[in-house]
Nucleic acid binder design. Sequence first.
DNA 1: GTGAAAGCGCTAACAC
DNA 2: GTGTTAGCGCTTTCAC
Lengths: 339, 339
Amino acid sequence: MRDATLRDVALLAGVSARTVSNVVNGYAPVTDRTRRKVERAIVELDYRPNVLARNLANGRSGQIAVVVPYLDTPYFAELLQGIIPRARERGYNVLIDQTDGDATHERDLIRRGARGFPFDGMILSPLGLAQEDLSDHDPALPLVILGERVSDGVFDHVGIDDVVASHEATRHLIDLGRRRIAAIGDQPYPTGEAAQLRTLGFRRAHEEAGLPVDESLIIRTPRFNRVDGADAMHRLLDRDDPPDAAFCYSDLVALGALHAALERGVRVPEDIALIGYDDIEEGRYSNPTISTVSPDKLTIAATAVSRLLQRIGSTEALPGVEVRAGHRLIARQSTVGRR
Amino acid sequence: MRDATLRDVALLAGVSARTVSNVVNGYAPVTDRTRRKVERAIVELDYRPNVLARNLANGRSGQIAVVVPYLDTPYFAELLQGIIPRARERGYNVLIDQTDGDATHERDLIRRGARGFPFDGMILSPLGLAQEDLSDHDPALPLVILGERVSDGVFDHVGIDDVVASHEATRHLIDLGRRRIAAIGDQPYPTGEAAQLRTLGFRRAHEEAGLPVDESLIIRTPRFNRVDGADAMHRLLDRDDPPDAAFCYSDLVALGALHAALERGVRVPEDIALIGYDDIEEGRYSNPTISTVSPDKLTIAATAVSRLLQRIGSTEALPGVEVRAGHRLIARQSTVGRR
DNA sequence: GTGAAAGCGCTAACAC
DNA sequence: GTGTTAGCGCTTTCAC
């Protein structure tokens, strides 16, 4: 049998469609008696509003898109786990899209906007996107960008202070007496803006400590992966003058580097200390455990969702704000050893 | 300015809405000349069909829901990475829902069906769902269940042969000369059907080898997590007669167990050999690397999507089929050591 | 091959 | 407080 419609309910309850709609949505005030009549009819017919029709009438889909480079990157998975419930409790479904780090895909998304797609706004974690790409976006698309960026005044950005956090991570290694420190994960402009902020923090920590930066110890990697970390570590250990520490731009990079080091019989942290970035659960269970920069993911997730919904709900263009979530340094075995 | 509608295009091209629709969807044949006219108008107006309206007219949302217990479980993240592109290439968006292992949530989903929700079908990875719960589902909801189940003849199930795979994993440990083998991850009926199949395979391997099963070495865990694995390992090592091997019901459990063992100075695999299940990338980078049962995730993902779309496309109720994807045993350092 | 027009089921302006 | 009704923008049956 065909599903009951609003009209069926109205008929059975002896009221108009308008009234049923009011009851369902709690918009306008309705007399108790009418409400009860309608509710009985709803139960009897097992009526449930058709979202598709509601969407069309509203012009809203009730969905937001979250676009990340890779779903199987634990950092994003953990972030999503914060985003989904927060969106849902405010009545929004979450569509997930994976770009595979494809800059073209990212660019298309923000240029084309939500038109022709069933979402009302987008949370984007860009990877290959240059600053310029952000300028020719669809202004009608509510957009929140994850990760720090140089302010553009148009979008909201939510992230931690990468320069400061990287500075702290590097100083942690310096404080432990390490002097030849590698940085693993640098990436060229324009795709690697986040990476460059981390390299900047790395340099500043050296400056502050009056230490020179050995440019050959700044290792570029294509991504922030385990395999990138392992490759980089192998290259570093092949040198005559290997480093005694490495600041890795993600925990995955650190875990890959750790794996490579141990494979070659290099001890961590005795021979080389490692610190990562992201504080994924995996780093709390590796052997040794990984020191890391821990971003406040819950705040990032919650803020991104609430900023986005604000933008969706607002008719005028809101100015872009920069939100800095907190972070803290967590020293584990890969720098301070087993105690 | 308001977005262009199909009607605008029709007006500009001097044809009817019907014809524009035909051009856009490639349904009916259209003369080349008409097509060109329409296409020019589309470009000029920067027209894009409104999905919301299309959905309502079609009665379909063009979305499927994928429901997993936890998004940050690498196995599910990797599976999703296979599911999303496959759904998308067939024109479907993917909605992701997380149940947090809440049986009530799962039950509601399959009982209520897609009615009132903007998805046309569902791929469900159940956790707390008993066989009985599956019987009072909404028959109008196209549903594919991930993971092996006793056949119910109604839904499709896609998974590997858990009993056989677990048998092989256990025999691998036996073949290495281990005699006191623990099983970590058993769960009581009805929530842990997958776990029970693995326990069955574990028992069969013992039988086959003429070995007794020490029931006290079968450890129940609330979930399939790192922390569960670590807890279980601690308990096992607290015993006077600790095991010399453990078959873990997931790689996460194995990684947690590994962490706990190493923390206590117990060597892996010399003192205790470990094998996991799922073949997540993390197990290829841990120290030591984790031996595992590797399910063919791509086949699982592709099959689940194509079965679901078949069901969505079919008007009549299809019989439930059981699809067995392949698997293979991968021996790594946690059982055979570093060679 | 193309046109006219009736829905799809809901929302909300407008009237009472 | 409730009823009437015109859309929302597309698909599709039915004629021509």
